[in-house]
Design a protein around this nucleic acid. Sequence first.
DNA 1: GCAATATGTTGGCAGCCATAACAATTCCTC
DNA 2: GAGGAATTGTTATGGCTGCCAACATATTGC
Lengths: 397, 397
Amino acid sequence: MSAIETTARSLGNNVDNLRRHNLSTLLGIVHRDGPASRSRLTKLTELNRSTIAALVGELVTLGLAREVQPEGSRTAGRPSPIVVANEKVVAFAVNPEINAITVGAVGLGGVVLDRVRMHTGNTPSVVEAVALATTEIKRMRSRLRKDVRVVGVGVALPGLVRREDGVVRLAPHLGWIDEPFSGRLSDAVGLPVSTANDASVGATAESRFGAGRGVRDLVYLNGGASGIGGGVIVEGRPLTGVTGYAGELGHTLVNSAGILCHCGATGCLETEVTQSRLLDVLGLDDPEMDELDHAIAVSESPEVRDEIDRQLTFLAVTLRNAVNIFNPRLIVLGGFLGALFEASPGTIERAIAEQTLAGPGDCVEVVRAQLRSRLLMIGAAELAFAALLADPASSAT
Amino acid sequence: MSAIETTARSLGNNVDNLRRHNLSTLLGIVHRDGPASRSRLTKLTELNRSTIAALVGELVTLGLAREVQPEGSRTAGRPSPIVVANEKVVAFAVNPEINAITVGAVGLGGVVLDRVRMHTGNTPSVVEAVALATTEIKRMRSRLRKDVRVVGVGVALPGLVRREDGVVRLAPHLGWIDEPFSGRLSDAVGLPVSTANDASVGATAESRFGAGRGVRDLVYLNGGASGIGGGVIVEGRPLTGVTGYAGELGHTLVNSAGILCHCGATGCLETEVTQSRLLDVLGLDDPEMDELDHAIAVSESPEVRDEIDRQLTFLAVTLRNAVNIFNPRLIVLGGFLGALFEASPGTIERAIAEQTLAGPGDCVEVVRAQLRSRLLMIGAAELAFAALLADPASSAT
DNA sequence: GCAATATGTTGGCAGCCATAACAATTCCTC
DNA sequence: GAGGAATTGTTATGGCTGCCAACATATTGC
């Protein structure tokens, strides 16, 4: 069973909405779960096979999917054509960071077609970020084959993004306050742009294409250079809150004797568990993820051990809160939190088992994130694909 | 706009599901928002008025709604009949507590028709609770008019209830562990029984019929004799988690130097903010809510003041966590937390404004719960009405 | 009393999905 | 290698749903 957003309206539905919903469901399946035979789609949706034939036919006509002949089958019966999401439908992904901007091109189905990380000397301003992203998107676009269809741009941003208009309410580490980044970028590239918090976007990506495949309720926590972000998937759908800011698990109390956080509170997870302290004791400076894992694995310094234990203890507090609050099936840890987690096998699981209530603690698992460098490309692209996936027919060219 | 659960399937939908969804939507509106004219239903659902006529006709035929002539109108045009949920469709509500069991009868539309609170000498065992509830339900049922239709029993229980089978996983204050209470009660009364956590049920009730009317994203926190329970409404629907245990905000860390909680963790909200400490300093013993409010209002003791401030400080920690995590429109405080909140106007709001992130803190309001003694009756009845509301046609007698 | 307005009512229609019968293709067995 | 079983694509038909348009009805305001 896959984690699928429902596209049905909460109020009155008519026959058009019905069709739209079924088209959306099919496209969602082949996009997120990969190629699927028509017979598999029939089983998954519980629709009639004649209906599936018609719906798939429409998706093919719309240029959103194609059918290929199956390889060898090992069951009796007439072979069922495989429906594949058309990866020539492309979204661009943008991820501004403290000292770099990454731009990528992602095909329907979650294939990362292109990816470039551009280092910026200092923290980019909105104008600089728009300019860099625009140049790179135009370059990538010109390199794409002529028959690709570009649906838009998705941006994963380390900050709070207002859902209704895509305005960056606050990106503390970039120094952006109330910046209409989406609008600026949209004007510059001539494509629709949608922006969201990087951790929320990461949660979506891991839940659809990574460690959380098939899981409908999960909590994702990511540790990066600019702090700790979180994202939550509830019944297969991202938790957004009223204005789109939900999921900030990095700003929950873990230490009453902690220091003041930039958010105004004290003792936040983000102030106690930081990548920089970990790198300090390890003597590293901006390593790749593999280097970090390796450095932790080979280190025999008690100072390193202590710092890891200290951070794990605080991380466990947020996780026990999360388990009691969300009762998730899965917790996914990304960035240096994944490294911390694997540095001391069993520690986090033990802490959760001891500190959570009997019910919610019964069935939760903790795993490390999987998508690595593709994470935010895939996640941001999902933002751009959202409208198409919700209504495949009317978003057509 | 009302907070309505969607009943559309997340996967394939056919024409039957469409009809079911529309019937469910209409019944949901008149149940939760009260009587509505057909023309209002037309606007709300965006369905055609001929369709509304057919759907309403079916609900009337099913005995779930009735139409009454409108009073005086003040607009031109033909008067539109008012559609009213049939309050002769009845659910029973049961709420076992430490020293009492409350049983009620609730009509469709959320009308509490009957309510009896029975004190028990000591904490009731499962067998005692089933026996007491059964006797009272049978008595109430015999007093109801012959033409009422009973749909089932809902139970609001101070403990963790597994969703899939209704087993009480753990009710610490009742001393119940892994008790199949739902099944026992169902066998005894001969009606379907569904059970859930009392605070979750309270959240649903306040969101549909109380302080949270029309709000789609809210956090509810209730303080009672047996601790602090929470419930969260996300996009109009109760947050359940994978196994139904979600919402336990009472077991989030508020004090690193706190004491060990029965849940296994230390410094939980539930150990720091307790009704008993508040009553101790006030010199009260099991007061009604009004008495508690009054006692706080007239007290001039600095000891009382200090205790209230102390508890508010810790409560604010959980609330800032909740605001950062859920980005809700509204926080609803029930039980003695409501009294605490009103004891010091502005304190909680100020703490939230100071300690939360810029985005999520922008638009959140804090209010006191409204439903008082009706709360758990209405909430538990909603559990019993759920199947009927989701599929009005097939749940018919 | 009449026009304007809003809404109920009715008959016909388009579209969606289900059904059933048939055709196609594969695997399995002898 | 031939035939049967199993599975699925294909096609024509039909039921049901909601929409539409025209008409009927009831109220307000002049």
